[in-house]
Amino acid sequence: MFRLKVAADKCTGCRSCETACSLAHEGACLPDLGRIWIDFADHDTKFSPKICRQCRRPRCAAACPVGALEALPEGGARFIVEKCVECGSCVSACPFHYLRLSHDGVPLICDLCYGRPDGPACARICQEGAIIAVESPEPAEQGKRTEAKGDANQ
């Protein structure tokens, strides 16, 4: 089980992480579809990668009126696309202003690249050390995530 950590001072703003993520999850080369994104709001040099904190009690899931986001025991949420009504409540609920929508209006939920042999794509591609995947100390219950991502991870 991984956790992602960010060292914003090491980020160079190259967007490799965003592009790796969009390709891994959407089969698209378009940084806007990344589940990770870099905040360029301070213009020049302050690049700040935004990642999902995998909250223990995810507000995004609590805010979802139709149960399209399901809180996971190990933290974070699982997204069930069929149920989503594209209301954006989850985005407003995210206390870290991290969560964003795809162009189709569905939330871009980080699954920590569950099941990928080389771990989260964003962290593996960032050699600057701005995004680091660390092993989570406690054993996690991964049942639901496995079930949800069964096909994608073969």
Partner: peptide, 12 residues
């Protein structure tokens, strides 16, 4: 101050 990378650059 800091390195600044172009798009997808591993060697900024």
């Amino acid at each position: 101050l800091t390195d600044k990378g172009c798009f997808c650059c591993p060697t900024p």
